[in-house]
Design a protein around this nucleic acid. Structure first.
Lengths: 130, 130
DNA sequence: CCGTATCCCAGTGGATACTG
DNA sequence: CAGTATCCACTGGGATACGG
């Protein structure tokens, strides 16, 4: 088991700050992408693998398990041959997805501004020889 | 953004990209905490250091620089003795902070549910000897 | 007061090969 | 099809010490 993460952050920091709690749930490189990809309806493993560009088999599995563990995703196995597994968002995950929309809106509105700020900042440091 | 063959699966990825962008900006252990802490008004370095429990001097500096670089934070140095530096959210950071509220709301509403789901999941694996 | 500079380790995630 | 198992590289971030 390469990645068990039930560390001190779960209890100490999270209690003090609900913000931390969201972030822990949604952090990691792939969680949100999976939530978005599954927002339309039930998805199969391979579907996710294909639609989320760049994700490895390992990380897909790992992230799915964590989301399932947190009750954001349900996993349904159909005893067919070949096997078929479907993942579906739970109600609270759908709620989360709605909240996410506000964030993506922000990102889209300001992506240019942020990119510009970044370049300006870098250019300035460069000019100073830093 | 180059339009590739726009299949149904590609759309998912495309829509998810802005999400990635937000996440990259806001990822890391401390970014959001700083944004929240600075939401009330200008804050000094030491103020942040004290109010954000557990943050190291190094990470505070690092995170502040990144936020500044992305244009989410302004840094104002007052040439006094002893030196005084104030950090303040930019307008787009305040917008981000508003969007964050929707997320923290979600976290607070469902923290119990999620915690329960997590324990249930763990208990089940344990019972199966996994 | 406000940082920078090093050192270092745990954790994250990629690549690849194997299985029910 | 839907995963596990294994190995490995990279980096986020803590501890600590020093400088303007």
């Amino acid at each position: 088991m390469p990645q068990t993460k039930a560390g001190a952050t779960d209890e100490i920091v999270v209690q003090a700050c609900p913000v931390r709690e969201v972030l822990d749930r949604v952090a990691g490189k792939w969680s949100i992408l999976i939530i978005v990809a599954a927002a339309r309806g039930p998805v199969r493993f391979t579907e996710l693998e294909r639609s989320i560009e760049g994700i490895s088999r390992r990380m897909l599995t790992l992230t799915l398990r964590n989301l399932e563990r947190d009750g954001l995703l349900t996993r349904t196995v159909y005893a067919t041959v070949p096997p078929r597994v479907e993942y579906e968002l739970t109600d609270i995950a759908r709620e989360l997805h709605q909240s996410l929309l506000s964030l993506t809106g922000w990102a889209q509105r300001h992506r240019e501004t942020i990119s510009a700020a970044r370049h300006a900042y870098d250019a300035e440091r460069l000019a100073e020889g830093r």
